[in-house]
Design a protein around this nucleic acid. Structure first.
Length: 549
RNA sequence: GGCCCCAUCGUCUAGGCAGGUCUAGGACACCGGGUUUUCAACCCGGCAACAGGGGUUCGAAUCCCCUUGGGGCUACCA
């Protein structure tokens, strides 16, 4: 085994990178890094109907955000390019021709409708549908004639039917498929593009891939792919396969992108007085489209879903990697958490840095059973990583986050940002830091007061106390944290009250909420002038004539 | 329906391949208590699992079979 390890991540560019894809990418990447091998990014854009032009770009950005880099692929280049399958048509054509010439593949003229019918007919059969190979293969001339008539022409691989197909899997051992179990499958579509099952085999060989780590959903494709490999490349050693378990959502079934629209729909139905025109407007869709969505007939695209959810204030479950970014998770957290979904280092370690993961990763420790994506545990992991990550790096992560969610806190310079982080100790996500410190960037007049907080805090003599606090703050010589603390504690003691009775009215007055950084820091950072201004506004708003000033 | 895979606390899992050291360990969640100026964070304690049934064996969470349950695939998608 002197061969250098080569792994690849081969996404089809249909949208954002989601957690499942990210995990596949990560495992392949970890194995390459662990062994000093090569990690290839290959874009499987062979489906013209589904690919979107920006998706490949997006997937690459998401990978970069996670810290997953590739040695060969788009942007990086490499000796085995091009790395977009749509640019490798001539290569596939060559191998298709070879198979055709050797009678290992044959032309088919069935339309999709024909196939549907065949399948329907086979429904009652004991073995289910299997494509019936013709007694003799159509000739090149037949194909040409069909093409000129505008008929559908595809190419099928003649899968060996007389022997069991054995797949060796690093995770599951040997799996045997009975003779005849795998029927002839299409390797070239009628639009001339290769199918996944074909392109993937050709490219894995040409790109000298040694290990394929992929989801369990591909396990049943493997015998066919291996048979194809033998037909194409004879005894050349095929890659080793490791089929990972599937990730299940904690909201029920399989973790899928459909969960977001589903959650939004549920929310829309629960909200009584929704302004549908406005909602459609916000989502950038027509009233008809919204109606179709509500009736379950159509699903708007992701940006629309996101916009409407934001408008309604409905949190959607994070599925795509960018969703986690926007929710304030660190890439370190995602990588760590994803790595532990179906793998573990064999000891009690859980919170691990990149380097540790690379050092400990091993393909033989992949678990066989499906794992559930536990968001509560994810949050806990994020809390740990926020504590653990180097301060400059955390600041950069925060800056990226504030930018993408368009927070006013983004106006802070590095020094201020670091200070904000330090007073938000114990934050679980970057969103916590943003939420807690936004009050510093608000205008006094337009500060929003949380109703519940006001009701809870401004009762009894809270207003009177706040008025007193105001006067004392105004009278302080030096406006320091220590000074503020001494004053507030002194006042509480004098009145025989807990500090909370004194601090809470002040907290709500300056930030509109009961949730904020520690009160001394908050007041100090707001500054005396602004603090007094806000207290005055609060006194006016919540005070009665008798006890305000 | 057919084929394939899987099965330890609520969840992620260690242990299983080399059966005894497992009265089954850790983490998250949860519950109770502590700390406390809010939210968090933090500290202490607690609850909680080998799916069921047959074998093999002196002995099974660990090996074999069946049942049940879960998942995947069954496309001119990847």
């Amino acid at each position: 085994m002197s061969d250098k390890v080569v792994t690849r991540f081969a996404p089809s560019p249909t949208g954002y990178l989601h957690v499942g894809g990210a995990r596949t990418a990560l495992f392949n990447w970890l194995w390459a890094r662990r062994t000093g091998g090569t990690f290839i990014l290959r874009i499987e854009d062979t489906d013209q109907k589904r690919n979107t032009p920006t998706a490949a770009r997006q997937v690459m950005d998401d990978l970069k955000w996670l810290g997953i880099d590739w040695d060969e692929g788009p942007e990086a280049g490499g000796p085995n390019g091009p790395y977009l399958q749509s640019q490798r048509r001539d290569i596939y054509d060559k191998y298709i021709k070879q198979l055709l010439d050797e009678k290992k593949a044959y032309y088919c003229f069935d339309t999709p409708e024909d196939l549907d019918e065949l399948r329907k007919k086979a429904e009652g059969d004991k073995g289910g549908f299997a494509y019936q190979r013709p007694g003799s293969f159509p000739s090149e001339a037949d194909a040409e004639a069909a093409r000129s008539r505008g008929e559908s022409v595809t190419v099928r691989f003649a899968v060996p039917q007389d022997e069991p197909l054995v797949v060796k899997d690093l995770v599951r051992g040997e799996i045997t498929f009975a003779p005849g179990e795998i029927s002839d499958f299409i390797i070239q579509k009628s639009d001339g593009f290769p199918t996944y099952n074909f392109a993937c085999v050709v490219d894995d060989c040409l790109m000298k891939v040694t290990h394929v780590v992929r989801g369990q959903e591909h396990l049943n494709n493997t015998p066919g792919q291996q048979a194809l490999w033998r037909a194409l490349f004879g005894d050349a050693e095929p890659p080793r396969y490791a089929h990972m378990s599937v990730t299940i959502s904690d909201s029920g079934g399989k973790l899928s992108k459909r969960e977001r629209p589903k959650a939004l729909l549920t929310a829309i139905k629960q909200i009584q007085d929704t302004d549908f025109d406005k909602l459609a407007n916000v989502g950038g869709i027509s009233a008809e489209q919204l109606n179709a969505f509500i009736k379950g007939k159509a699903v708007p695209d992701m940006p629309s879903i996101d916009a409407m959810a934001e408008f309604l204030g409905v949190p959607l479950p994070e599925i795509n990697i960018v969703d986690f970014f926007k929710s304030g998770y660190l890439p370190e957290t995602m990588v760590n958490f994803l790595a532990l979904l179906g793998w573990n280092p064999g000891d009690d370690r859980e919170i691990m840095r990149f380097e540790e993961l690379i050092e400990a990763f091993d393909l033989t420790r992949l678990s066989k059973s499906n794992s559930l994506f536990d968001r509560k545990k994810l949050i806990s992991f994020n809390t740990e990583h926020i504590k653990m990550v180097e301060s400059g790096r955390l600041r950069e992560h925060l800056r990226d986050y504030l930018k993408i969610v368009d927070s006013p806190v983004a106006a802070a310079d590095d020094e201020l940002l670091s200070k904000l982080i330090s007073i938000c100790e114990g934050a679980r996500t970057l969103a916590d830091i943003d939420r807690k410190t936004r009050f510093l960037f608000a205008e006094a007049d337009s500060l929003k007061y949380d109703e519940k907080a006001v009701r809870k805090v401004f009762k009894g003599d809270a207003v009177a106390i706040l008025a007193e606090v105001r006067d004392k703050l105004a009278a302080m010589d030096e406006f320091t944290e220590q000074g503020i603390e001494d004053m507030l504690r002194g006042l509480a003691e004098e009145k025989q009250l807990g500090l909370g009775k004194v601090a809470q009215p002040l907290r709500v007055a300056i930030c509109g909420n009961t949730i904020s950084p520690p009160i001394f820091d908050s007041v100090r950072m707001l500054g005396r002038e602004e603090t007094l201004k806000r207290i005055d506004i609060a006194l006016r708003k919540f005070g009665t004539d008798g006890n305000a000033e």
